[in-house]
Amino acid sequence: MESQTILRSLPFAVMGAVAVLDLLAGPRLGFLSLLTLGPAFASVSGGVRYTAAVGGIALAICLPLSVYDHLLGRQQNMITFFTIAGVTAASMLASRLRNRRERELANVRLVAEAAQRVLLRPVPRRAGDLRIALSYTSAAADAQIGGDLYEVVTTPRGVRLLVGDVQGKGLDAVETAAWVLGAFREAAYDEAELADVGERLETSLSRHLGGEKFVTAVLAEVHDDEISLLNFGHPSPLVLGGDGSVHPAEPQEEAPPLGLVSLGSPRPKPYKIWFAEGDQILFYTDGVIEARDARGRFYPLEERAALLRAGEPQAALDCLRADLLAHVGGPLPDDAAMLLLRRQRS
């Protein structure tokens, strides 16, 4: 709001400065043509009428100054009047085009927000004895969705979740993310075993993806005092034990991403880890651990994991996200999603 106020007042400040300079210098230096800066600056922040009004004020200022400088009626002075009028007309056109593009951008943002609500629905903050927090940062400017994906569903067999990362960027990645999420939401309710959910995702993606495209993903199913994981080439979740320990939940054998399993590669095998009262597990995409600072150093997630132990889960995860952005010192080069589960029965 403050910057908008400054922009709105800038044309008048510039024209006032030009008038003062012309009064002090007289007709020798010829500052009157600089009054065109008024309507030019007005087109940056104002509408067509506002720009026209500023152009009219510029002409109104030019008239008495021309009399003061003994230039009124001379050819040079007439050229100055026409120049101000011409720049005002061009600025009005620029203002109209800018306003139209802003309306188009606003409509695109509304569509993007609607797409986000469909693709990346708000996850439940509580599910039984679980407390859930989420952070999603898109690398695309002014975008809220990208190639990273997540979902948490409560099924008759317990809480199941998915965190994944689509190869590539742009609309193709968003389309693939939508395909994966749709397949997971159905399979999570239909299939009895977590491995069967993974098979459904692979089957679905093998029909959708072409060439060597793939999706890294980790699926999870929460049980009493443990959690089952199924890792398709995704960064291993980070476990924060209630005793203060921090370690990645790595699978016994590496497996290929979704979309490549059907090419004959070995299927991933579900594995279980301890997940009791006070424990936490952080799911994340590679945009987190591959974020670099100005010296090229990767973000030390395990070292900064202590930030997740203080306060409520969402506040703690927001603190970790702020630390990640501070490490990079600017926009993230890749999408970054983080989903935190905390087992907290009370």
Score class of each variant (00 low, 15 high):
Y271H: 10
R49Q: 10
L194T: 01
Q167R: 14
C62D: 10
H234I: 10
L32E: 08
L240D: 02
S3F: 13
R74E: 14
R109V: 12
D69M: 06
Q75L: 12
A115F: 00
E191L: 08
A183H: 08
K269F: 03
A310C: 03
V152H: 09
A127D: 08
R185E: 11
W274M: 04
R207K: 04
L32N: 04
G56P: 04
L282S: 12
D196S: 07
D243Q: 03
V153H: 02
L130A: 04
L65T: 07
V87R: 01
V166A: 15
V18A: 12
G147S: 15
L35G: 15
E221I: 08
L301I: 15
L324V: 13
A217M: 11
Y271V: 07
A143P: 13
Q75N: 09
G146S: 09
D129G: 03
A133Y: 00
L72Q: 12
T80F: 00
G311N: 05
R157L: 09
L282A: 12
G30N: 09
L134N: 10
A291Y: 11
L32Q: 08
E221N: 03
R100M: 09
L65C: 11
L325Y: 11
A40Y: 11
G211T: 08
A141D: 12
L10K: 09
S346R: 14
H70I: 12
Q76N: 10
E212S: 12
V48M: 07
R304S: 05
T36A: 15
L282D: 13
L7Y: 10
A58P: 00
A173C: 06
S95F: 14
Q344F: 14
Q252C: 00
W179K: 13
V44M: 06
V14D: 07
L29M: 09
S45K: 09
V197I: 13
A255T: 08
G311R: 06
P266G: 09
R160D: 02
L209P: 06
S204G: 13
P257V: 01
V153M: 01
R126V: 08
E290N: 13
L32S: 03
G296F: 05
V44E: 00
R49E: 12
D148R: 12
R125G: 09
L324G: 06
Q314W: 06
E254S: 11
L32Y: 04
V54L: 05
R126C: 07
P27Y: 03
E290K: 12
L308N: 02
M78Q: 09
G147Y: 04
R103W: 06
R28Y: 06
A19E: 04
S3L: 14
A192P: 02
S9I: 15
T154F: 01
S206C: 12
A316E: 08
A188Y: 06
L317T: 13
A106E: 15
A255D: 10
Q344A: 11
L339E: 03
V67P: 00
R321L: 14
L320E: 05
D224H: 11
Y50M: 10
A17H: 02
M78R: 05
G146T: 01
E221A: 10
A90C: 14
L161I: 07
G38Y: 14
D196A: 07
L332E: 06
A315V: 13
G244D: 05
F82H: 05
F232P: 01
P266M: 08
G259S: 05
A316T: 03
S43D: 04
L59A: 04
P248M: 03
D190N: 07
F12A: 14
V174C: 01
N107A: 08
R292L: 13
L71N: 14
V166Q: 15
D196C: 01
